[in-house]
Computed example of a mutant assay.
Amino acid sequence: MTDLNWIFDTGFWGMRFYDMPNFLICVVFVLLAGRALKVPASYQGVLLFHCALPLMLNGVLFSYGYMPDAFKYWWEFNAIRGGELSIYEAWTGGTVERAALYFSAMPFPFAVTPLSLGFFNSFLYSALFFWLYRKNVFTPISLWFYLLYPSLALYTGMGLRDTFIFVFMILAVQWTREGRWWLATVPLYLLYLIKFQNFFILGPILLLYSVFGIRHSGVSGGKAVAVLIIAAITLAVISPIALPEINKFRSAMFVEDGGNIEDVELIGSPGEFVASGLVSGIYFLAKPFLWEASNPLQLIQAAENMLVLLLLALIVRVAWKQVPRKLMFWLLFMALALSVYGLVVFNYGTAARYRYPFVVIFVLFVCADCEVRRFLSVSFRGWRRSGLRRTA
């Protein structure tokens, strides 16, 4: 494989110089798309700031080794572009090779530095914004949440596969909302290839959404309770098979996060399995708490979590008053997703990384389906959209 280590000899500014073409591609894309869609300058300004985020993360806020898997995607990307790894080999390889193949298909000339793939992800972040904007999915609340949510900005500004996971999930949900479930199978399949866990969470939920016509009628309170009861019974029934696998993943994640294998608390019974899922799901959404933070980054995460929880509570409050039947569906979606990951994820940073796609999906589509445009007496007076059409 071509030696890429020479780039580190160019120094801080040298590495950023080599990434100027990637940065400029992102900037030009935002300006052209913003002009074509008549996006207000304030939104474009935030997107342009996001274009520069890769320059400010690795080597500035974080060391280059903070996300070691980013190096794997970078190396495999260059192996594919350099012809050392064929498309077939990448496609039939592991999740790292497939994610690198996705990166290699993007309209960027090269990824010379470890920062480069961050610009690829920034491009995806902006492209998804314009796509959602054009489809009138945003409300004032969800739009500004998308633009200002720190975890979303952070993980879409680094060279990780997480942005692909996030984009595929959003595409699948929106196309399912539009009734084009056959089209939604494409991003779901691409999601399965790099993050099968999210596929098995999102796929069944969207199947229910389509089969039961939830986009039209929503879910009644009785049905929601019935679903929860059935889910609890199902978990109890499958626990003899599921518990060993859950405990295996709990142990692996605990050790990967630096814990001692002997300190892992294994789940021992069906009742504990169900109860742990509910409790850990809530904790997964909120952790770390302020008193659990042991460094400045965790303290920032804790503060962000408090604000996000407050925002979610306000959104749910308004949505419950307006379209409770549709809110029920998205609450079930969150309960399932958070419970699954809550059982196996211990590290605070990993929790933030795995959590943000589900939080963004919840905010985007609860606001869209339940018409949550404001949650205080003060409205977004500057919000103006011509030709606004509802896509539900």
Score class of each variant (00 low, 15 high):
residue 34 G to Y: 03
residue 36 A to I: 13
residue 37 L to K: 10
residue 39 V to P: 01
residue 39 V to T: 12
residue 40 P to I: 05
residue 40 P to T: 03
residue 41 A to G: 00
residue 43 Y to P: 03
residue 43 Y to N: 07
residue 45 G to W: 10
residue 46 V to R: 03
residue 51 C to S: 13
residue 51 C to E: 03
residue 53 L to G: 06
residue 53 L to I: 09
residue 57 L to N: 04
residue 57 L to P: 05
residue 58 N to A: 11
residue 59 G to F: 04
residue 59 G to C: 04
residue 62 F to H: 05
residue 63 S to W: 08
residue 64 Y to T: 06
residue 66 Y to A: 09
residue 67 M to R: 08
residue 68 P to V: 12
residue 69 D to N: 12
residue 70 A to E: 09
residue 71 F to N: 10
residue 71 F to S: 12
residue 74 W to Q: 08
residue 74 W to E: 06
residue 75 W to H: 15
residue 75 W to I: 15
residue 78 N to L: 10
residue 78 N to M: 06
residue 88 Y to S: 15
residue 96 V to E: 12
residue 99 A to R: 00
residue 99 A to W: 12
residue 101 L to N: 00
residue 102 Y to P: 02
residue 102 Y to H: 08
residue 103 F to V: 12
residue 103 F to M: 09
residue 105 A to M: 15
residue 105 A to G: 07
residue 106 M to P: 00
residue 113 T to N: 05
residue 116 S to R: 01
residue 118 G to K: 02
residue 120 F to L: 12
residue 124 L to M: 14
residue 126 S to F: 07
residue 126 S to Y: 01
residue 127 A to K: 01
residue 133 Y to C: 05
residue 134 R to L: 07
residue 137 V to H: 02
residue 137 V to N: 06
residue 138 F to Y: 07
residue 138 F to H: 03
residue 138 F to E: 01
residue 139 T to D: 07
residue 143 L to S: 08
residue 144 W to N: 12
residue 146 Y to F: 11
residue 151 S to H: 04
residue 152 L to N: 06
residue 153 A to C: 12
residue 153 A to F: 02
residue 153 A to N: 14
residue 154 L to G: 00
residue 154 L to S: 02
residue 155 Y to N: 03
residue 159 G to P: 05
residue 159 G to N: 01
residue 159 G to S: 07
residue 159 G to E: 01
residue 160 L to R: 08
residue 162 D to V: 11
residue 163 T to L: 12
residue 163 T to E: 13
residue 166 F to N: 01
residue 166 F to I: 02
residue 172 A to E: 10
